[in-house]
Design a protein around this nucleic acid. Structure first.
Lengths: 149, 149
DNA sequence: TTGCGTGCAAAGCCTTTGCAACGGT
DNA sequence: ACCGTTGCAAAGGCTTTGCACGCAA
């Protein structure tokens, strides 16, 4: 983990950029917490360590990390954009339309689909996002009547 | 297609709502054009027929149609929300990160994945969104150097 | 000294809301 | 007349930008 920051620092240095305490704080929060945080969430948590930090700094850090491929911007239908560490992995989410719970799952069955699509479309596919929308086990009983057939 | 509007009119009538010319225009534009339109796009096109229409009306119509399940709100990472007709089908998109082209593809291999996920997670899955991000055949040469390994 | 990074405040965008007026039933 | 619907304008929420200052190289 500490190596992670060394790497990031080197990566930034190559581009004449710096890993400031603020940026490190933002990154640490994203890496530590395996959730999907909004900019505001990150702002709140960062202020615990840096009370003077500005929201704009959060956005600028997130933008930077996104360009570096360290962080991914996500967008579930709720309007709020969220961020998560992009560790080279693709995103697989289960989104409960009632309580808003967002779970993740791992699945490798997509590999062959990936290849098929790439071959047929000519796209160079770098990553993907697969989201299943529905109701989680806690909420689904409430919505049984909505599901026809 | 004409039957479509009759159906929608009936569906609305059940709820004491009306299929006004404005709403019909919005729906027609979405159904006609198999693209992913922003609210602004729809606004512009609708004004050809209804120059006095307001953007708020577009949003309200889209919200209504979404509640009725006729239209889906999409969100590609570009910040702009887009809409497409929801004909009960799931969404499979290929998004070019360079030129922004968004293509669709059909794929049934997801069926078994769907079942596996549902069984293991307990989720009641209603639909899903699968997006592959990368570069389309026209743009990919420009980005070859970015792709490591 | 140069120019990257920051905080603050202001500006921007897109979307939603309030409100008076309109129109179908 | 009632109430859903509309257009306009204003308000909102989130994100970006401008700017002067601070600070590391």
């Amino acid at each position: 983990m500490q190596k992670m920051f060394t790497d990031v620092r080197a990566l930034l240095k190559e581009k004449n950029l710096r890993l400031t305490p603020q940026r490190e704080a933002v990154l640490k929060i994203l890496l530590d917490c395996e959730e999907h945080l909004t900019a505001e969430d990150i702002y709140d948590r960062t202020r615990a360590e840096y009370p003077e930090i500005g929201l704009a700094t959060i956005y600028r850090a997130l933008e930077l990390f996104e360009e570096l491929g360290l962080v991914s911007k996500l967008d579930f239908g709720d309007g709020g954009r969220r961020y998560e560490p992009a560790l080279g992995k693709d995103h697989h989410h289960l989104i409960c339309m009632d309580c808003g719970q967002i779970a993740e799952f791992n699945e490798d069955l997509l590999g062959q689909l990936h290849e098929t699509i790439a071959r047929e479309s000519g796209f160079l596919i770098l990553n993907h996002s697969l989201r299943f929308f529905g109701y989680c086990s806690k909420c689904k009983d409430k919505h049984k009547h909505e599901v026809e057939s």
